[in-house]
Design a protein around this nucleic acid. Structure first.
Length: 480
RNA sequence: GUCCCCGUCGUCUAGUGGUCUAGGACACCGGGUUUUCAUCCCGGCAACAGGGGUUCGAUCCCCCUCGGGGAUGCCA
């Protein structure tokens, strides 16, 4: 079995495409198939080498690796469509000489006006077939006018075309309603996707095409080309499109959609991979957080849901948090450090051991790596400026008792050696407070907030000096 | 407009002609553990789009309607 992922390098890797890549990868692994990466860069205006590079990066980050592609070669190259124009030319000549394609001299403007003239919906337009049967004289005349022709595929009348689709089952079309003779070569000589995709799939011996649902309606065109050229027809699996919360195709306006953004916001590749794999599918046990091997073992195209799923950012976050907890702590440190740095802290000032201990405490409070930016200050700031909630809490009467008691204790019996264990116990003795009434004010004094990591775990990591300063700060602020 | 795809809790899904008073997960709500918020554990809320058939019996099979999506490009 051979499968392929064929992105067009016109921007960052979008999560929708990422899912296509993921499913291709999983299916390839499961079947010990070869995965081909093909770059579909026939849109000369929008394709860039930078985009291509970023796609490689994003795929690699996700943990997706391919066997053949522009970057690593293979027996069926080149793997960039822009480098295969000679190959397509031969097929185009064949189609024209067979009468399956013809040159069309209509200009964009003429086409545009017949659309309007057709009396209404531009959407209902199909090409008139004006240039279908030009005589040599007519052709000469157009050429003399300086027109550069496109090449159109002659779509046969009333011919059934069935797409063999592993997810949807057989899908039947009729050639008469796929929109008429379509352009296969632009007037500048560059071939279009719908034409060459099937040639490349055949030449690259792709046996199963896994791609987005948005390609389903165009598949009959491609199949018709294959038929005219005598090329083999692959089997298909059209994945339902991922939707935004408003049920339209997921796009930028729905939020973060590029893989690159997920990485920079602190999502883990394993979590994104896992989430995307589970979108539209369920494991045998019903569990959702699964190691890659299990997903590969259990994935089955026939069991993929036919529904277009809505991308659930919240669930992804949750899943990411679950991965954060299970991750090897050593790797996690390196992943967290850039986020700590970005939050404005000098990580080289703290020892790695200290950082490790802090992160061991904080990781359960984070869903994203970037969540640490609002929490790390608890450990590294000198003074913990109380936030709104903490401030409200500290204005209470019990809080003042706690502040005063803590303040006195730091002036007296508490030392660097005993403060962590001693503070809570002694404040309790002095004030007679306990439970929530004791802990919440202390938490507010020490951390500046009402939510956060366990106090008794945090205090030793914050350290005697900082704790003392924070107590003094609160004493100045609330008890005078 | 036309063609194609799809319709189970708010969301992702399991399910298959009777075992479904429809299962799980996220979210939400409540309780418990934690001398503290959170974590964690337990519990709750909540769905077979509607109408016709077929059948002894339909969430499941068929048809229609409605709803959603995609395609219809000298984008892919």
């Amino acid at each position: 079995m051979r499968v392929r992922f064929a992105p067009s390098p016109t921007g960052f890797l979008h999560v929708g495409n990422a899912r296509t890549a993921i499913v291709n990868y999983l299916v390839a692994k499961k079947n010990r198939a070869t995965m081909v990466l093909r770059i579909e860069d026939t849109d000369m205006e929008r394709s860039t080498r930078e985009s291509e590079e970023s796609i490689y990066r994003d795929l690699a980050w996700l943990g997706i690796f391919w066997d053949e592609g522009p970057d690593r070669g293979g027996p069926y190259g080149p793997y960039r469509q822009s480098e295969r124009f000679d190959i397509y030319r031969k097929y185009t000549e064949q189609l024209i000489s067979q009468g399956n394609a013809y040159r069309c001299y209509c200009t964009k403007e003429e086409l545009e006006s017949t659309k309007k003239g057709a009396g209404g919906e531009a959407e209902s337009y199909t090409y008139s077939g004006r240039c279908r049967n030009l005589t040599d004289a007519e052709r000469k005349k157009f050429e003399a006018e300086g027109r550069t022709p496109t090449v159109r595929f002659r779509v046969p009348d009333n011919e059934p075309v069935v797409v063999r689709d592993m997810i949807k089952g057989p899908v039947e079309f009729n050639s008469s309603n796929i929109g008429g003779d379509f352009i296969i070569i632009r007037s500048d000589g560059v071939p279009v996707f719908n034409y060459i995709v099937i040639i490349d799939d055949a030449l690259m011996k792709i046996s199963l095409v896994i791609r987005g649902d948005d390609h389903l309606s165009n598949t009959p065109k491609q199949l018709l080309v294959a038929r005219a050229l005598g090329l083999p027809e692959p089997e298909y699996a059209h994945l339902p499109l991922i939707m935004g919360p408003d049920r339209s195709k997921l796009s930028k306006r729905h939020g973060i959609t590029s893989v690159e953004m997920y990485r920079s916001q602190g999502y883990l590749p394993e979590a994104l991979m896992n989430y995307m794999a589970m979108l539209g599918w369920a494991s045998e046990s019903g569990e959702e957080i699964l190691p890659l091997e299990t997903i590969i073992d259990q994935i089955d195209l026939k069991k993929l849901s036919k529904n277009a799923p809505i991308f659930d950012f919240q669930k992804l976050r949750w899943m990411n948090g679950m991965y954060l907890r299970e991750y090897p702590i050593e790797r996690l440190i390196d992943l967290f450090i850039p986020h700590i740095t970005m939050a404005g802290y000098d990580t080289s000032a703290a020892s790695r051991r200290h950082l490790t201990e802090i992160i061991a405490v904080l990781r359960t409070k984070c869903e994203l790596l970037s969540d640490i930016s609002s929490l790390i200050g608890i450990f590294l700031d000198d003074v913990a400026e109380p936030d709104e909630d903490a401030d409200a809490m500290l204005r209470g009467e019990d809080s003042k008792k706690v502040i005063t008691a803590a303040h006195d204790l730091f002036r007296g019996e508490l030392t660097a050696d005993n403060f962590a264990a001693g503070l809570v116990a002694r404040v309790k003795d002095v004030t007679g407070l306990k439970g929530k009434n004791l802990f919440m004010p202390l938490r507010a004094i020490i951390t500046g907030r009402q939510k956060g990591p366990e106090l008794d775990q945090s205090m030793p990591l914050i350290g005697y000096e900082k704790c003392r300063k924070r107590v003094e700060y609160c004493h100045d602020r609330y008890c005078r």
